[in-house]
Design a protein around this nucleic acid. Sequence first.
DNA 1: TTGTAAGCGTTATCAC
DNA 2: GTGATAACGCTTACAA
Lengths: 357, 357
Amino acid sequence: LPATPPRVTLRDVARTANVHPSLVSRVLSQDPRARVSAHTRRRILSAAQRLGYHPNALARGLRLATPRTLGLLLPDLGNPIYDQVVRGAYAAATAEGYVLVIGSTYNDQATELAFADLLHQGRVDGLIITSATLDSTTVARLAATALPVVVANRQVEGALASVIVDDEAASSLATNHLLDLGHIHLAHIAGAENAETSARRISGFTTAARIRAQSALILRAGTRPVDGYSAALEIISAHPEVTGIVCASFRAAAGVLHAAAVRRRTVPDRLSVVAIHDDLLADHLLPPLTTIELPMRELGSAAVQMLLGRIAGNSPEQRTVPDPPRLHIRESTAPPNYPPLEHSPLQSADRYHRAST
Amino acid sequence: LPATPPRVTLRDVARTANVHPSLVSRVLSQDPRARVSAHTRRRILSAAQRLGYHPNALARGLRLATPRTLGLLLPDLGNPIYDQVVRGAYAAATAEGYVLVIGSTYNDQATELAFADLLHQGRVDGLIITSATLDSTTVARLAATALPVVVANRQVEGALASVIVDDEAASSLATNHLLDLGHIHLAHIAGAENAETSARRISGFTTAARIRAQSALILRAGTRPVDGYSAALEIISAHPEVTGIVCASFRAAAGVLHAAAVRRRTVPDRLSVVAIHDDLLADHLLPPLTTIELPMRELGSAAVQMLLGRIAGNSPEQRTVPDPPRLHIRESTAPPNYPPLEHSPLQSADRYHRAST
DNA sequence: TTGTAAGCGTTATCAC
DNA sequence: GTGATAACGCTTACAA
């Protein structure tokens, strides 16, 4: 017993409709130059319908020398921001008649290379690599192959196409928000060492802080909640003068709020926190978290556009998604030491209440 | 200028090595029955290496009538639990020499059907559909096709293979945890109406509550943080006697903690909360959230195993991943009304501190 | 308007 | 040991 029922092919349809396979192909692939009588066209379409015909993508891809498929490589699926990237990429790819397949690389070099094989094997027409931690030799090797590859979320000099969001502006926006509130001693909890986004966010923080802040501390931490937790504990202990924290990631920011609670630094009265990247959870943390929303969906669609351009033969370019970062003010940021002495969490709970009804 | 460099084919390698293409194929695909002289073998291998030959997956898939690829369809990538499923599935697929491609369907019927085409088009050997909200007509239609499909996270009667985790046991475990602490008025915040996991979790809650609880309330909410928030507000208002909540999802539970803070129902002193599904954030919510961890990684690998079985011709079966749910006790659960009168949030913060150092 | 034939890159089967 | 041939399912000049 075959597990899979025998495939219905073009020939089956042709036989049923009493025509030659090539005619079926022309009708079904909607060849505009095909002059086919209404009668045969109907016969063919109904035969295809009746038999449940589906063109074989492998055969078609082989013949046309393009599978009409794009690959999107994500570092991990545990970070909800990639959902947005996928949605944007999916919409753009589908609109152009491409199938989008997703792979998860776990920031693992071997896995990343395994996925590069998808390209060599002709399974996909091109690849979008969304890896903030892709090492530079791999990048160089990819650039050398001149394959249609777009690196998203990482700026690459030279021969490789890349597209990023304006992390620097996002970080500056966050920092200026704190400065506008009157904070003068700031800290930045940055992401992983090897992530290029970290560098750009550090740069945005530094640029904004240099002008108006009296002190600006930078901690290399990571993006897990526990990384934010540890970093915040350290800031609170070693740098009590800091009243405003710009956190490079949403998930780390939850750890910051936790650390603040443990150390009784009421947020926002005695410590303000703003995170880069928005999330549905932001409204429901304690207190609801002020965030910077980045155009991740647009990053996804822009990456697809660029990739299709590369496939069409355009030369590689470096782009930044034009949509600006957006500040969502919630309740984790306020002027420093406000209210001056009253800072019971209950009062803070009061504020959530007012805001939510 | 062609964007893609011309493909290196088997014939190119053969020409370079001065042998016939079929020989190259036998050598490179490691045909055990091939008797090839060490000399030619070396020539072939070095030619392939030098030219940077990669077999064309489309041609091979066409010839072998199998692309050796599995598809994994996820409802959305915004929920970190799917990361675990993907890891499990990826490891299992890779171990068997299959490529795993992921698609995100957004619980959208049209998109789901579009992905089913991957199968019809011969792009994949089989499909794992991880959709809690797949409607029953679609399920029936899939079952009718007898295609190699495994439904994960949804139990299906009849002709379709399916694999689930023990949601019912997870929910009972959560409920019994609250009952053991002495709670007698319980509520369950369930997921979406049409999600099958919701039904199983409700069942586990009901089963456990029936034996020892005095009242057991069930609210159909959803899995977004805001769903948990609204549901919890309602419970606190309309059912103040409830002291323990079993929340069907991690993200909704964050909303529950928020609602409790807004309404000054200190957690865990005056309200206990336990969520199904663990997450790195659980340690850093306020207070850290007691959770039930489900074997999602194993769900992914089991789904792949079953799918490969189906492809090999096994008849469809319904399985439950054997690994039991695990309770992670953190600080959102405690005996009811404990301590009896003292329930300031600051004291609660104290507890975090002790626990974290 | 429809049919013919060749070929995309592989591999299985046979012959030498 | 190695080479020749055919076929997987589809598309597309070109011929009829």
